[in-house]
Simulated scan of single mutants.
Amino acid sequence: MAPAARRSLAPLALLLLSAVVGVASADSWLYDKFNTDGTVRTDYDAAGQQVAMLNLDQSSGAGFNSKDLYLYGEFTIQMKLIPGNSAGTVSCFYLSSGDGDDHDEIDMEFMGNSSGQPVVLNTNVWASGDGKKEHQFDLWFDPAADYHTYTIIWNPTNIIFKVDDKVVRCFKRYADLPYPSSKPMALHATLWDGSYWATQKGKVPIDWSGAPFVVSYKGYSADACVAGGACPAGSGRWMNKQPDDAERGTVKWAETNYMRYDYCQDGWRFTQGLPAECSRS
Rank of each mutant, 00 (worst) to 15 (best):
Asp176Thr: 04
Lys252Tyr: 10
Ala211Asn: 04
Met1Leu: 14
Ser279Ile: 00
Leu71Ala: 02
Asp102Arg: 10
Val119Arg: 06
Ala211Tyr: 03
Gly219Leu: 06
Gly73Glu: 12
Ala10Gly: 07
Glu74Ile: 05
His188Asn: 13
Tyr44Lys: 13
Phe64Trp: 09
Glu105Phe: 06
Thr250Asn: 12
Asp244His: 07
Met79Gly: 03
Ala227Phe: 08
Arg173His: 13
Ala233Ser: 12
Gly273Glu: 11
Val125Gly: 05
Leu56Met: 02
Ala13Lys: 15
Glu247Val: 07
Gly234Met: 06
Asn113Gln: 13
Cys264Pro: 03
Ser281Glu: 09
Ser96Asn: 09
Thr151Ile: 08
Ser8Cys: 09
Gly202Trp: 08
Glu109Met: 09
Glu255Gly: 07
Lys201Val: 01
Ile159Asp: 02
Thr123Tyr: 01
Tyr44Gln: 15
Leu14Asn: 12
Ala87Val: 07
Tyr220Gly: 11
Pro243Gly: 04
Ala189His: 06
Gly210Gln: 03
Trp253Ile: 04
Trp154Ala: 00
Phe161Cys: 00
Leu69Ala: 09
His148Cys: 10
Asn155Trp: 00
Pro205Asp: 05
Met185Lys: 02
Leu56Asn: 02
Val40Phe: 05
Val51Ala: 10
Ile82Tyr: 00
Thr190His: 08
Trp208Thr: 08
Ala87Asn: 05
Arg260Lys: 15
Ser114Leu: 12
Pro178Arg: 01
Pro243Lys: 06
